Computed example of a mutant assay.
Amino acid sequence: MKNQLVVIGNFGSGQGNCGQTIKTNVVYSLLKKERADDTIAFDTSNLKSISKIFYLLFVVFRYDKFVILPAQKALPILACLFYIFNKKADYIVIGGWLPEYLMISRRFIKKAISSNFRIFVETRDMTSKLIKIGIKSYVLPNFKTFVKFKLESVLEEKEKNSTKVNYVYVGRVIKEKGLIDSINALYNVASNFKDKQFNFDIYGPLDNCFESEFKNAIKKFKSENLIVTYKGFVSPSEIQETLVSYNFFLFPTYYEGEGFPGCLIDAMASGVPIIASDWKYNKEIVKSNENGYLYKSKSVSDLTNVLSHSFLLSPKDYKDLVSKCLIDAVTYHEDNVKLTMEKYNFFVS
């Protein structure tokens, strides 16, 4: 059927999960659910294959309805093909890299994007940046399907581990995510509050190039009242049950491509207030003294101060943070974002 919807993106076949592949699969699952059997997928992973390039060329030529979610490597190829065949697509941007990418002299790609793609980005600030270079876009925030936890049950789970102050991170374990800054800052806090026990658990795929430096940092900043543990991969289906018992989610990123990470939705949906760097678009999601705290990016001293403040909160103030997290998370639930997608006719055959 020529009028089938084709979703083109990195589905991560055989490569494991990351923010790119998780969101691609989430978007595809929603589209397929709403359009029944009218939706098919094209996986851009391993796009170096000549046979796969030719198949992609055939797909773009053959069909008329597209949703695309390319990263930087696949975007030029898709921009070229859609421009040549004069086809239209809804482009759901994953991450925050597109405005900076297009600010560099890439006139053909900008022209192709402007004329052939309807662009959906994750934050309002991204739309503002794109407008400045003459590209119109719309906001479609990151989203997930999750269980809507009750405040009382979340607080009960946290009480089970009340002898420690428990911090957590979930995501790619790479240098630019700022994890060494977090470990350093927690070491400073633990040194100043020796009567408290601190725990920092880190989940996610560990980059081989960062492994040695990461493990050395854990050894270097080890102390009697601070335990830092790398806990490997946690599946999306287990993320809420894993996170709910933690006191705070640490997100010290200074990654250049950061947009609206799905891990922040996971944290809020699990009732875990977020301590994040004031980097890129974090301030649109994390509101200081509401659902978490922001600190000056790359500043270990500022992070130390925020961490010191975080565990000294009164029970009422902490409860308010948890409550706001659960409320804010609902904004990014699939059910709500689906309404925005309906407005833009994503589900119309």
Rank of each mutant, 00 (worst) to 15 (best):
D38H: 13
I22E: 09
I180A: 03
I77V: 10
K158L: 14
I218K: 06
T123V: 11
K87L: 11
E256H: 11
C18K: 11
G16P: 03
S115E: 11
T21E: 03
N225P: 05
K220W: 00
L69C: 15
L206W: 06
D317E: 13
C18A: 15
Q197L: 11
F146H: 14
S191A: 10
T39I: 05
I180C: 01
P99S: 08
G257E: 15
L5N: 04
V348N: 14
V121K: 05
S297P: 01
M1W: 01
Q240H: 04
D320A: 06
L313M: 14
D125R: 10
L151F: 03
V147M: 03
S114D: 07
L326V: 09
N17S: 13
L151P: 06
S153T: 13
Y167K: 12
I68P: 04
S237P: 06
L294Y: 06
V154E: 06
F214M: 08
S223P: 05
Y246N: 00
V165S: 05
Y293N: 01
N161T: 12
N10P: 02
S162F: 11
R118T: 13
A112N: 07
K283N: 12
Y281S: 10
I239F: 00
F82K: 01
M126I: 14
N216G: 04
P261I: 00
G292K: 01
M1P: 09
I285K: 04
K215D: 03
G262F: 04
K196Y: 10
A276K: 00
Y255G: 03
V139Q: 11
S223M: 04
Y167H: 15
K283M: 06
V168D: 02
W97I: 02
E290F: 05
I84S: 05
L140R: 15
V348G: 07
C263D: 01
L98Q: 00
G96Y: 01
I109T: 08
